[in-house]
Design a protein around this nucleic acid. Sequence first.
DNA 1: TATTGTTATACTCTATAACTATA
DNA 2: TATAGTTATAGAGTATAACAATA
Lengths: 163, 163
Amino acid sequence: MTGAEILPAEAAGIEDGKAGLSFGKFERSAGFLLRIAQLTAFERMFAELKGADVKIGEFTILLAIAENPGVRQGAMADVLKIKWSNMTKLVRSLEGRGLVQRFVPPQDRRSVELRLTEEGRKLLEAFSPLMFEADRRALPMLSDEEHGHFLALLRKVSGWPPL
Amino acid sequence: MTGAEILPAEAAGIEDGKAGLSFGKFERSAGFLLRIAQLTAFERMFAELKGADVKIGEFTILLAIAENPGVRQGAMADVLKIKWSNMTKLVRSLEGRGLVQRFVPPQDRRSVELRLTEEGRKLLEAFSPLMFEADRRALPMLSDEEHGHFLALLRKVSGWPPL
DNA sequence: TATTGTTATACTCTATAACTATA
DNA sequence: TATAGTTATAGAGTATAACAATA
């Protein structure tokens, strides 16, 4: 990440999203701003990724499996804040599309271990650069230094250990 | 906000939300972390606010109207990232519950100006302290200094001017 | 013609409880 | 009894297009 190709906010067309509205003391509400910031970032990401045949949520699951081969379905659901019942449907859908392989280990036959198929791995590798660039491009208003600081704070809020 | 009553992360039971999972270079993806952080914060806020008879989204709309009397419905929808068609239903629902008053000004009879009813104002004032405290308590892992820095970065990402 | 808001509808996401199989 | 996952279902949230009224 050089940051050289990141446009300054003005050139990127970032305007006052508030449009003159006020929110009183809730302008200092992190929960409220977190919601707006997330919607703003995703709005910009979707604009870059529309037409792709993987949704951001699906991509995240493929990524989690690729980086953690054999991960248990429930553990992944917890980290990604997805209910187990809903994760079942997501994983079954990805399995049905030949992207994910489910494996029931003999040691604990209640559990399900997940791995990518070759097709899943290819799809992930094909979309990974696009997704990564779209992510950074969605936040052109942050300098590389601010971006780094932002990441650290977000990890802290999420209960993730520092990088 | 003194911060004196804010517990340190350990005492508040903040643990490693990652649970050992890895996400490769996407651990440096702000979009991805933004999503997890927002879900984490809202999870904690909902835990404090469950049972209340206003949803967070509804509260936000009441707040926006209270702070901007006569605000036009569409302008509010844009700032809050809610589609106009969906905002219609939300506002009509609040109107039906006697919390919001709609007014069509003679100067531009296409538009709708919004104001709180007395009942709406009372409900907002009743829930405002609870909501504000729940918001800050949802982020006990941040010091007051970090919290302030976090707010500034979130505003920047949202395209909002600095405080 | 463009803007503001509405309606209808479909789709996705999320939440809840009851259930199976296994430990 | 507790845990991992599934099923079914309801509800909330979100997206799209067609439309009416007004500018």
